[in-house]
Design a protein around this nucleic acid. Sequence first.
DNA 1: CTTCTTGTTACTGA
DNA 2: ATCAGTAACAAGAA
Length: 293
Amino acid sequence: MPELPEVETIRNDLKNKILGKTIARLVIRLPRIVKNNPKTFVRELVKNKFKEINRIGKLLIFRLERGEKFLLVHLKMTGQLIYCAKDFVIAGGHSLPAGQAGLPKLQGCLPNKYSRVIFYFANKSALFFNDLRTFGYLKIVNKNELEKVAVKFGVDPLSQELTPALLKRIFKKRQTNIKAVLINQELIAGIGNIYADEILFTAGVRPDRKARSLRVKEIEKVTRAMKSVLTKAIRFRGTTFNDYADAQGNQGGFAKRLKVYGRTGEKCSRCGGIIIKKKIAGRGTHFCPKCQK
DNA sequence: CTTCTTGTTACTGA
DNA sequence: ATCAGTAACAAGAA
């Protein structure tokens, strides 16, 4: 599931590929993915260019050259944005370069049955929005609408604003457990189920602890863990557990470095305890009951 | 067949 | 008004 490191990887990949290219043609295969009137959507994009790509939490924001408009893309659980250069255009479609892993459950050739929206650029390259479970969306908004969306997001965990002092204030006014706080996008933007578990393991804090019960030393550890886990995950280009692929269609390299997520029943790498899984904050939550306090 | 997967939101009850 | 907790959504895997 794309969280901050995966969305950031895609953003960086796409920046080098699609900025400044003219969008020549659009194919909307599943209209309900597009949250605008389809005709408006096509009119705003065709003959336009992407000028800049930003991210707030897990939301991608493509600034368009013409019209002071922005394309919002949310990948939700199974969304992908895969770019194919014209070299890989084959008859009737596109193919991922040979040697690339492609996608575990999806075909290597694009478009595939999960390609919901396709952008064709003037130079014959293409950008595919694929989404197996169709929870993701694309939406064009103006500056005002973007501002309304943006203010709902909490602090970015990698920004300098996120300090132990701020985290202490966030934790203090909540009655719920720390896992629920970490995945609440209105408080901290970008952490989902996988990285919440990994951050709490690294910090040595049990996910079912009440957020407001954490001591200053523990808050400092959570702050450091947040930065280190997310930074390292970005360095390894994200976690592919099921469907995540980067903008080239490759898997991320962080899955094998996960310490607790998906490791139920395995030995804890820190203390040798057995990792357990339990439903916390409505999500499958993995932790070591021996060394997470 | 049932149960599980999760990012976000709608809804419920306090 | 605000917050916490849960169901729902979708589509596939097991």
